[in-house]
Structure formats: C-alpha cells, structure tokens
C-alpha cells in the first residue's frame, strides 16, 4: 500500500521540478544576453556584428561600415532581438577573433572541453572519495590531519598556478610531457597517443583543483556517519571493522556527493577556463577568454549562453539523480 502510494505520487514533484527548471532556462538566457547587449553599447565591443549574423562574413568593409552606422541607431533591444532571431535559426554570427562562423568554432572546440572536464571530474571524484574516506574513517589520526591540511592547501592553490608549476616540473625540468596544446605542432592528424600525452597535465591539474572539495565533503560526511548509531549497532552485531567502515560509514557519505557533483559544474568550468588557458588547450573555455580579450562579442555571447545551459542542466541532473538515488528526499513532510 505504501509502495503503491509512493510510485503514484513520485512522478509529480519530479516532473514539476524538471518543467520548472526548463521553463526558467529561456528566461535566464534572455535576461543574461539582454544585459550583455545593453552593457556592450558603451564599450569597444561591436554587438552590431553579432546582430548581423553570418551575413557579415560576405560583406566588404564599406558595406559593413554602412550597416554599422544604420544599426547603431537601432538600439540594444533591437540588436538583441535580431541576434536571437538568427540564433534560433542556427546562425550564431561570425567570430571576429577566430575569423569563422561562431557555430563552427564551437563545434570544433566543444569536444575538447567536454573531454577534459569529464575525465577530470571522474578522477577528482574518485580521488576525493579515496582521500576523504581514508581521512574520515580515522578522525583525529595523523592521516586525517595530513589529508585535511593537504586538501585545504590544494584548495587554496589557484589552478593556474598549479598548472604553471606542473609545466615547469614535468615539461621544462624533467621534459617528460609537452608544455601545451592538444596535438604536436609538426603533425596535422589527431593521433590518440599524442593527444593522450598532451592531455595528462591539463587533466591532472583540473582534477587536482576539484579534488579537495569532494574530499572534504566525503570526509565530513564519513565522520558524521561514523559517529552515528548505525555504526555502533553494526559493531555490536559483530561486523568486521574494515567492512563496517566501508559499508556503514563511507557508503552513506557518497550520497551527498551525488548532489555535489552537479553543483560543482560551475566550478569545473571556472577551472577549465584557467587550465585551458595555461596549457593552450583548444577548447571553448579558453575561447571565452580570447573572445573577451579580443572584443569578439558574437563568440562571447554564444559561449555565455552555452555555459548557462550546461550549468542549469548540470544542476537539474544533480537534483534528479538525488531524488532517484535517495527515496527519502521529497517524501518527508510532503
């Protein structure tokens, strides 16, 4: 009876959650881009180019200048509307810094960023669980102190600095790995082993920058679980200590991690921006910095929209996963 009741109701809050977020997303995107277009009026940025879409690619200088003069009078809101009109038809405009349609730039660069982020995330979570679990199951021990201090220090180290140190040690001093890029300059083809060699440092540095957070979350949750009644009850039942620690202390601590992963997407993107810049990784994150430095409004606008979408979807995935994994959420108190 209880089970039946639950499954009947389970759909509705979840659906409401998903629908709510998906409805919020366009509003958020509209507001963010509108603010960008309005602010850009007073700056050296050229939103007109963005509003023109890919037509700008086929125009010569004087025509463009004329268009710019005419468009300059139309105001930010019209430009914004024109940009969205084009964007919804797949035309994201021309990137002035990359000299190519924005859509092409993103299509080429996005896989590099997603790959970097995905592998780093997996490594960071695995490492965080390992370190946090080890420290959390031995509260107050030297392992706990070392792990705690180490995690805090790593967290306090900016990823761009860790990256530079890694470049100096492994690329310059030891000469084991390349200093940057994703492929060797002398080859045009993308060879898996070559990419792997180039990816080692960026992936490890990004993973290291995200690891402390997961580690500290797991450590605290493990400590809490360890102090709770279930562990004592398990001990009194005669469960061997190592199993007790793994199953009854660390495992409950992994549940909060599920939400944490999704919530960390913005931090992961922040880390990716810095790591891609340090290692000249050809992803979208370093392109964001490029577009900002080189006054490339079309690209910056498109990348901001892309980032927002990724983050919102990441948060949503985390919330959904949490509800699916933990049946307790959303049942207590309605």
């Amino acid at each position: 009876m209880r089970l039946l009741d639950r499954s009947a109701r389970a759909g509705s809050p979840l659906t409401r959650l998903v629908l709510g977020r998906l409805l919020l997303l366009p509003v958020l995107l509209a507001v963010v881009t509108l603010v960008m277009f309005v602010l850009a009026q007073q700056t050296p940025f050229d939103p007109v180019l963005a509003a023109l879409g890919e037509r700008a690619l086929t125009m010569d200088g004087p025509t463009l200048e004329a268009m710019r003069d005419r468009a300059g009078d139309t105001g930010a809101v019209q430009q914004w509307a024109a940009w969205w009109g084009n964007a919804l038809q797949g035309d994201l405009g021309v990137s002035s810094s990359q000299r190519a349609p924005v859509a092409t730039v993103i299509a080429q660069r996005l896989p590099w960023t997603l790959g970097l982020m995905a592998v780093s995330l997996v490594l960071a979570v695995a490492g965080g669980v390992l370190v946090g679990g080890l420290a959390g199951t031995r509260p107050g021990s030297w392992a706990d102190r070392v792990a705690g201090g180490g995690l805090l220090s790593v967290q306090a180290a900016p990823p761009f600095w860790t990256g530079l140190v890694a470049v100096w040690v492994f690329a310059v001093w030891l000469g084991w790995l390349p200093t940057g890029g994703a492929t060797s300059p002398d080859t045009d083809a993308v060879e898996p082993f070559d990419v792997l060699r180039h990816a080692v440092l960026p992936v490890l540095v990004l993973a290291l920058s995200q690891l402390p957070w997961f580690g500290l979350v797991v450590r605290d949750a493990t400590r809490d679980a360890l102090a709770g009644l279930p562990v004592r009850a398990g001990w009194a039942r005669g469960i061997p200590t190592s199993r007790l620690l793994r199953q009854h202390a660390v495992r409950p601590a992994l549940l909060p991690l599920v939400t944490v992963v999704g919530v960390r997407v913005p931090e992961l993107i922040t880390g990716a921006v810095l790591v891609e810049t340090v290692f000249s990784w050809p992803g979208v994150a370093s392109a964001t910095v490029d577009s900002a430095l080189r006054l490339d409004f079309s690209l910056l606008a498109a990348l901001t929209v892309l980032t927002t979408v990724i983050v919102v979807l990441g948060n949503l995935a985390a919330d959904v996963a949490y509800r699916v994994v933990d049946p307790r959420v959303g049942q207590r108190d309605g």
Binding site: P230, A236, Q247, H248, R328
Partner: peptide
C-alpha cells in the same frame, strides 16, 4: 564475542539501521 553473545535491541530501531543499505 562481538555480535555473538549479546543482541542489542536499540530504542529507535529505524535509526540504528544504515540508511543507504
């Protein structure tokens, strides 16, 4: 003897079980 001699029936049985298992 741990777990073999004495059976503990705690006051709040639900709270004594590990929530994720």
């Amino acid at each position: 003897v741990r777990g073999r001699v004495a059976a503990w029936l705690p006051q709040a049985p639900q709270g004594a079980l590990t929530p994720v298992l």
